[in-house]
């Protein structure tokens, strides 16, 4: 595989392979010196056109633990501010000699465009409302770690589905692995069409919660208020926020997940994060190992996996 642009590039078998490699890197991450030489001499660039702390740091950590060299291109300090086009920026970076570029952009599809212009491997670090495949992979890994498998499991994804790349990638990943997915949101926060999405839809979180093995909460952005999508955040929280009271509707052992950053008190009750089945920090920890696996899969020689 050359690039990781979409979860659909992987399919169920590809996701399984990433999970298998991730197992090895989780073990590496637990060592006293969590570093392997697998990508020594390789260069990984993060090209982030959007503010992001966790994804960028997670990729950088992953690359460093594989002994790759890392470069960080962030828009606020770059020539983009001087008017350089996307293509020129990408070609300039490639001219420095790189092996992989992690692209985060606010516009859907940019990693596909970049992949047309460079020889390096392109990893989609999140594009617009479209996809965030490594997030979905780490979410799959986290669910498997806790529940054994996604096959036959039921996951509710709750919140701003319409504007969420996390939701799009997770729908593809969870269903590819055999899970049932229910999307829960007010109609204004659903995509205009769900034709071809193998999901069910609900506008009643209280009805859904008792039936799920995991509830996945999406970040609710304040700017949605200005687009007449919601009357108020308060009304959103009263209908769709996972308050402590509501979390009691979940079956024993059901996971509570969130891609971060959270709006405590909006989509998730402030104290819900402390519940034993809340795996949000586990997601972050797994993110590093999953991204190591992705980089290894795209750039590795196949040898000395965890030497």
């Amino acid at each position: 595989m050359k690039h990781l642009l979409s979860i659909s590039d992987l399919g169920a078998d590809g996701i399984d392979e990433v999970m298998r490699i991730t197992d090895s890197f989780v073990e590496v991450s637990e060592r006293a010196i969590p570093k392997v030489p697998a990508l020594r001499g390789r260069t990984v660039v993060s090209l982030f056109y959007e503010d992001s702390t966790r994804t960028r740091l997670s990729f950088e950590t992953a690359a460093k633990r594989l002994s790759a060299d890392t470069m960080n291109f962030s828009v606020s300090t770059s020539s983009v501010k001087k008017g350089e086009s996307l293509r020129d920026t990408v070609e300039t970076i490639e001219a420095m000699g790189i092996d992989a570029v992690v692209v985060r952009h606010g516009s859907s599809g940019v990693p596909w465009q970049v992949a047309q212009w460079v020889d390096a491997s392109v990893i989609n670090g999140g594009d617009g409302w479209h996809e965030h495949p490594t997030q979905a992979l780490l979410d799959c890994y986290t669910i498997r770690q806790r529940l054994g498998s996604l096959e036959g499991r039921h996951v509710a994804i709750v919140g701003d589905i319409k504007h969420s790349r996390v939701a799009r990638s997770n729908v593809l990943a969870f269903t590819a692995l055999g899970a049932e997915v229910t999307l829960v949101a007010p109609p204004t926060l659903m995509p205009p069409s769900l034709a071809g999405w193998p999901v069910t839809v609900s506008h009643d979180l209280d009805q859904v919660l008792p039936k799920v093995d995991a509830v996945y909460l999406l970040r609710m952005q304040k700017e949605r208020m200005t687009e007449a999508l919601l009357p108020s955040l308060r009304e959103y929280t009263s209908g769709y926020g996972l308050t402590m009271a509501r979390s009691n509707l979940l079956p024993e052992g059901a996971l509570i997940m969130h891609p971060g950053p959270m709006n405590r008190g909006v989509e998730i009750g402030a104290d819900v994060t402390d519940l034993p089945n809340t795996v949000i920090t586990k997601q972050v920890a797994n993110g590093v190992a999953v991204r190591m696996a992705v980089l290894y899969l795209l750039l590795g020689s196949g040898a000395d996996l965890v030497a």
Binding site: S108, S193, W197
Partner: peptide, 10 residues
């Protein structure tokens, strides 16, 4: 706006 815009996140 439709099936494809929804899928592509545009």
């Amino acid at each position: 706006e439709g099936e494809w815009s929804s899928r592509l996140g545009i």
